[in-house]
Design a protein around this nucleic acid. Sequence first.
DNA 1: CGGATGATTCAACGACTGTTGAATTGGAGA
DNA 2: TCTCCAATTCAACAGTCGTTGAATCATCCG
Lengths: 211, 211
Amino acid sequence: MHPDQILDAAQAVFGRLGVRGASLRAIAREAGCDPALIYYHFEHKEALFEALLDRHFPGMRQALEELADPSDLRSTALRLWEVLGIYHCRLAGAPGLRSLVRGEIVQGAAGLQDLIECRIRPILMAVRQVILQGIQRGELRAQVDPTLATFFLVRMQLEILDLLPVVLPRLQPVTPDEAVRRGMEAWFALYWRGIAMDPNAPLPPLPEPPH
Amino acid sequence: MHPDQILDAAQAVFGRLGVRGASLRAIAREAGCDPALIYYHFEHKEALFEALLDRHFPGMRQALEELADPSDLRSTALRLWEVLGIYHCRLAGAPGLRSLVRGEIVQGAAGLQDLIECRIRPILMAVRQVILQGIQRGELRAQVDPTLATFFLVRMQLEILDLLPVVLPRLQPVTPDEAVRRGMEAWFALYWRGIAMDPNAPLPPLPEPPH
DNA sequence: CGGATGATTCAACGACTGTTGAATTGGAGA
DNA sequence: TCTCCAATTCAACAGTCGTTGAATCATCCG
């Protein structure tokens, strides 16, 4: 059995139950192997979680750091919309991982928090760079706090991916996928109007985020 | 020992460790009693959580429904700011509660989902009423989707309460309390600009949210 | 003082947890 | 066919969990 198969199982079970709530026996059952085999491929439970992080975050970091290249002269609106698109497609295959990471940040053990921080910080910093460049180019209001604006943009996108497909269909007759699409568009329109130098300038046509 | 003292302890330990991570022995230690005593006052662990829910949600619901009274002619900005204040002070002491509620919504154990939904839906509907009235009074843009706008306002406020005090001090030298205060102000400024009919009209002086 | 009653503790059950050392399998090379 | 080594399983350890029945304590009533 390839370690990746164990990682697949861990991703599924972690996503359902969280790191603390997921037992190695449940992961092994999902993978169809003995719990002890996990210890042959991974040092311990936390290493399993770490390997799971390393499966998704490096690619996302690279995509966002390329986007933050100061020589990219496309409009800030387009680039920030692409931030949402990167979150959307890079994390689409990991339902549960997003909530999982959030949960471990809020109430996880200190070790896990450090594990997560060193992976998330570069990602946040790349988005922050795009916002800083937008301010310097006069496209965004100077009063905007780039750190908080980064937090707002990114956190709400994660809530739209995680929570909205569950919540909105209970309030309106929409499918989960449609909830995400409408949520992203409405959120970006609100956010852009909130930070843009000229809030009434029409948004450029935004490409559909890839799925 | 009064059952409220046990609830206090449960709230504290739930807040530190989450509901799944908090053991009844830890709660008993915090309360200074024997674990078995908890079973004298409460049916089981989940009943502890439910009692905790009923400690916070009814008051919040009432406060928000009063705020949504259509005869309240104060400015929409002021009333929406008060929504944030109500979330802030009513939920200040119950971080574990917020995380658990969100987790149960995302995971979707149907029974608990319904239990939570019947408590949360009236709260969301009250906020939505305020936004609807704002649109009718011409203070908010007609393009604003009131349901999504409610989701955005409330979810971000919860993220500011839960996540920002953990995240921001790792990025900037601020205390957790200061992170919440600055987060709320920056969020409301962005949000208001995003939904207001006239984004450049200065915000009325907003009162300090009570602590 | 005896007794009744509610509050509290004690000790233990069975189930589950992460983890590990020894035993077993399976297949490739000599 | 035998050997060797990696892959995999088995069985068990020590600990924690939620929960419970019996035992103890405190307090009030008669």
